[in-house]
Deep mutational scan, measured.
Amino acid sequence: KLETFPLDVLVNTAAEDLPRGVDPSRKENHLSDEDFKAVFGMTRSAFANLPLWKQQNLKKEKGLF
């Protein structure tokens, strides 16, 4: 399991300012399950079932792209 970080560490943070080991294209993977659901309004599995373009739009909207 990946290390999780608080939302404010990941949202609207440039790649070079992210904690070590965080993939800038997969910031959402480093949210706790609770934060993930609070941000996206759905579970990880529901998010994973969305088309890629919709996932990317949601990530942009939430500052996690």
Rank of each mutant, 00 (worst) to 15 (best):
K1P: 13
K1I: 12
K1A: 14
K1W: 10
K1Q: 14
L2G: 10
L2S: 11
L2N: 10
E3W: 06
E3V: 12
E3P: 14
E3M: 11
T4Y: 15
T4V: 13
T4E: 07
T4G: 04
F5H: 07
F5Q: 04
P6S: 07
P6G: 06
L7W: 08
L7S: 03
L7A: 06
L7V: 09
D8R: 08
D8N: 13
V9D: 06
V9R: 12
L10P: 02
L10S: 02
L10K: 02
L10M: 04
V11K: 10
V11C: 08
V11M: 13
V11Q: 13
N12K: 08
T13Q: 08
T13A: 11
T13M: 13
A14E: 09
A14R: 13
A14T: 11
A14M: 08
A14G: 08
A14S: 13
A14Y: 07
A15K: 10
A15G: 09
A15P: 14
A15L: 13
A15N: 15
E16L: 07
E16D: 11
E16P: 09
E16V: 11
D17N: 10
D17A: 09
D17G: 08
L18Y: 06
L18G: 04
L18S: 04
L18E: 04
L18R: 02
L18N: 04
L18A: 04
P19L: 04
P19A: 03
P19G: 04
P19T: 02
P19V: 02
R20I: 15
R20Q: 15
R20G: 12
G21E: 09
G21R: 05
G21F: 08
V22M: 05
V22I: 10
V22F: 04
V22L: 05
V22R: 02
D23C: 10
D23N: 09
D23P: 03
P24H: 07
P24K: 07
P24E: 06
P24Q: 07
P24F: 04
S25T: 15
S25P: 02
S25Q: 14
S25K: 13
R26Y: 11
R26E: 06
R26W: 08
R26L: 08
K27I: 15
K27D: 03
K27P: 07
K27Y: 04
E28H: 03
E28M: 03
E28V: 04
E28Q: 04
E28N: 02
E28I: 05
E28Y: 02
N29E: 14
N29M: 15
H30P: 01
H30I: 03
H30R: 03
H30T: 03
H30V: 03
L31W: 02
L31V: 02
L31F: 02
S32E: 04
S32V: 04
D33K: 04
D33H: 06
E34V: 10
E34N: 10
E34P: 08
E34K: 11
E34L: 09
E34H: 10
E34G: 08
D35T: 07
F36Y: 01
F36C: 00
F36T: 00
F36K: 00
F36Q: 00
K37I: 14
K37C: 14
K37D: 13
K37H: 15
A38P: 00
A38T: 14
A38F: 13
A38R: 13
A38I: 12
A38D: 10
V39L: 12
V39G: 00
V39F: 06
F40A: 00
F40C: 01
F40Q: 00
F40H: 00
G41D: 09
G41V: 04
G41M: 09
G41N: 13
G41Y: 05
G41Q: 13
M42I: 08
M42Q: 02
T43N: 11
T43V: 08
T43P: 09
R44D: 00
R44M: 05
R44S: 03
S45P: 08
S45R: 12
S45Y: 14
A46N: 09
A46S: 10
A46E: 14
F47R: 00
F47I: 00
F47E: 00
F47P: 00
F47A: 00
A48C: 11
N49W: 07
N49L: 14
N49H: 12
L50K: 01
L50R: 00
L50P: 00
L50A: 01
L50H: 01
L50F: 05
P51S: 07
P51C: 06
P51V: 03
P51L: 01
P51E: 07
P51R: 02
P51H: 03
L52Q: 10
L52P: 10
L52N: 09
L52F: 13
W53N: 08
W53A: 10
W53Y: 10
K54D: 11
K54S: 10
K54Q: 14
K54H: 12
Q55R: 09
Q55C: 01
Q55F: 00
Q56I: 15
Q56N: 14
Q56T: 13
N57R: 14
N57S: 14
N57P: 00
N57E: 15
L58H: 03
K59W: 05
K59N: 01
K59V: 06
K59P: 00
K59D: 00
K60S: 10
K60N: 07
K60L: 11
K60F: 11
E61S: 11
E61M: 12
E61G: 06
E61Q: 12
E61R: 08
K62G: 04
K62V: 14
G63T: 01
G63L: 06
G63I: 01
L64D: 02
L64A: 02
L64C: 06
L64I: 07
F65E: 14
F65R: 06
F65S: 15
F65N: 12
F65H: 15
F65V: 10
